[in-house]
């Protein structure tokens, strides 16, 4: 699903945020990405989303070299990836329902089909009863679940999450991770960046560890 081939990323021409990354993620696999703050986890995810472009090497997603996408194709590429952010990135002036519906609105999905899928996604994260609420009225954990519902409403083949439990207490973090495992179970390729080592260790999935921009460990689930 994802192949990094000797990928390097420099910011501002000098600073090397990522160096010589070489790994593959199979379709349907669930992978954790760990490392200290500043190790390059976010940079790696941003490369996959084509928010940044590699300074060297190639990145293949579903067999396509994403560096060769024409700018006009990039939005359509991004629609195939669900992304969850640490700070949720919800729109605070519209309801939970409309936040989750946003990717479908962008694609121009028929309203009836969109409603069906939004409700299914909200149901999956246990927030169907809050669809008319505003994000402000929800707790941090609930907001993160809205972010997850928005990421999966499109049924993406690839789900990326950048520190999705960063601000949550251990119980809520475990709940969120369980959601990602559910999507993994139905065949979605999932990649989660996190530095919650205790939680990751318990979940037993393949883990990529970055240190100062280098891949220092690639441990298969025990």
């Amino acid at each position: 699903m994802i192949a990094f081939e000797h990928v390097g990323k420099r910011y501002g021409g000098r600073f090397e945020a990522l160096a010589n990354l070489d790994f593959r993620v199979r379709r349907g696999e669930m992978v954790f990405l760990t490392g200290h703050s500043g190790a390059g986890k976010s940079s790696l995810l941003r490369l996959i989303m084509r928010l940044e472009r590699p300074s060297r090497g190639r990145i293949l997603v579903a067999g396509h070299d994403i560096d060769r996408l024409h700018p006009s194709q990039v939005p359509f590429y991004r629609r195939q990836i669900g992304v969850v952010f640490q700070d949720h990135q919800l729109l605070y002036d519209r309801s939970i329902y409309h936040n989750v519906a946003l990717p479908l609105e962008i694609q121009g999905t028929e309203p009836r089909e969109a409603a069906r899928r939004v409700r299914a996604a909200l149901d999956k994260v246990g927030l169907l009863h809050r669809e008319q609420a505003l994000p402000i009225e929800l707790s941090g954990g609930e907001q993160q679940r809205v972010g997850i519902a928005r990421a999966v409403v499109n049924k993406p083949a690839l789900l990326l999450a950048d520190e999705p439990t960063g601000n949550l207490d251990p119980q809520l973090s475990a709940d969120i991770m369980a959601l990602f495992e559910d999507f993994h179970r139905i065949g979605t390729t999932v990649m989660v960046a996190s530095h919650d080592l205790a939680l990751i260790a318990r979940l037993r999935h393949r883990t990529l560890r970055l240190h100062q921009g280098r891949l220092v460990a690639d441990e298969e689930a025990a």
């Binding site: 928010l51 939005p75 590429y77 991004r78 629609r79 990135q89 729109l91 946003l102 990717p103 962008i106």
Partner: peptide, 16 residues
């Protein structure tokens, strides 16, 4: 601005 950033992240075209 924030709204524009978010919709761009999830695949909105410039036209959108």
């Amino acid at each position: 601005r924030q709204e524009i950033e978010v919709v761009t992240l999830i695949g909105a075209t410039h036209a959108f």
